[in-house]
Each structure stands twice: as structure tokens, then as C-alpha cells.
């Protein structure tokens, strides 16, 4: 029996959850139930042999790569980059070009929790009616510092998806992040 996350019906439901997350940045969206963490379910949903994936911290094992039908790519060239958000950034992702900004990478970061953290951020931008607050737990501070650099020249930039065991939260490049005290 193939695990649920590699099946079409699950991937359709998971995609709608990810779509909702990107449509409404800062909202916590619970994925349909499966036996794996949300990040792996998202990769199974979006990545295949026609895309590219980097795993600089070697979080995936060989069976995952076989299922994804893909070989690892360097983070500088990958469409998707999979990392632990608790560890600092140590690469420069593809930001796309002025003519083709869609080549800017999607970063999938694992976290312990998407709320209840010590530092709160205010999010504004498309998909957000006025503003939402966001307080992730354990996100290394280097991610948002780097993100500000990477996304400084819209439409170039990276899009982020933060994932816990069961839920996801998206930060598209169009979202403005402000730290509040």
C-alpha cells in the first residue's frame, strides 16, 4: 500500500490547503490527515520530475527521492528548497529575473509551532484584509533578515511556506513583514 501523501486524492486536498495558505498569508491551515509531517506532504503535492528540489540539510532519505522521481539540486538553482527553519540560512536561492520572476524559489521550512513565539510580526499585503499577527516558534532570525534582502526588488524574490507536523502558513514575496514589540 502506497502512503497516502503520494496519492492523487490526498494531493488534491493538500493542494487546496496550500492554495488557501498562499491566498491568505499568515493564516494557519491544517492539512488533511496523513502519517507524515506537513512539509513532506507539501513536497509530495507540488514536486515531481518536471521541477527541482534542494535539500541542503539532508532531511530527506532515499525512499523520498525515489517517490519524488527527482535528484537533489543545488539550492542556488532549485525551484523548491527544503530546510529546518530553526537552523540559520546558508545559501543564496534563485530570485528569478525581471522577465521571469516565477523562477524565484519556494522555500519550505519546518518549524515546531506557528504561534506562541516570543517575537511577533505584523503581516500586511495582498490576501490580508488589514493586518495579521504572526509569532512563529523557533524560527532562526536569519531567515527574515535574508528574506528582506531577497525580496527587496519586487517582482524578484522568494516565497516561503512554514510547516509544522500538521499545518502550513505561507509568506508570499508580496507580504510585508514588520517586527512588533
Amino acid at each position: 500500500m502506497i502512503d497516502l501523501i503520494w496519492q492523487a486524492e490526498f494531493q488534491q486536498a493538500a493542494f487546496r490547503c496550500v492554495l488557501e495558505a498562499f491566498s491568505r498569508p499568515g493564516t494557519i491551515n491544517t492539512l488533511p490527515e496523513c502519517q507524515h509531517n506537513a512539509a513532506l506532504a507539501v513536497l509530495a503535492t507540488l514536486v515531481d520530475g518536471e521541477s527541482s528540489l534542494a535539500d541542503p540539510q539532508q532531511l530527506l532519505d532515499n525512499s523520498h527521492w525515489l517517490r519524488l522521481q527527482i535528484k537533489p539540486t543545488a539550492p542556488e538553482r532549485a525551484a523548491f528548497i527544503f530546510c529546518q527553519g530553526t537552523r540559520p540560512v546558508d545559501f543564496e536561492p534563485n530570485l528569478g529575473t525581471l522577465a521571469s520572476p516565477e523562477h524565484g524559489a519556494t522555500l519550505v521550512l519546518t518549524l515546531d509551532a506557528l504561534k506562541g513565539g516570543d517575537t511577533a510580526y505584523q503581516l500586511t499585503g495582498p490576501g490580508i484584509e488589514t493586518a495579521v499577527l504572526f509569532a512563529p516558534q523557533g524560527l532562526d532570525i536569519s531567515w527574515f533578515k535574508q528574506r528582506a534582502d531577497w525580496n527587496s526588488a519586487f517582482p524578484l524574490g522568494v516565497d516561503m511556506l512554514l510547516a509544522t507536523d500538521e499545518a502550513v502558513l505561507a509568506l508570499p514575496r508580496s507580504t510585508q513583514i514588520k517586527e512588533i514589540n
Binding site: F22, S23, T45, L46, S51, P101, E102, P155
Partner: peptide, 11 residues
């Protein structure tokens, strides 16, 4: 699906 997500990120 990948294209839709990029389309939302770059309105």
C-alpha cells in the same frame, strides 16, 4: 498547481 501558487505570490 505550481504555476497557480506563483501567480498568487506575484499578483
Amino acid at each position: 498547481r505550481r504555476s497557480v501558487i506563483k501567480a498568487i505570490c506575484i499578483p
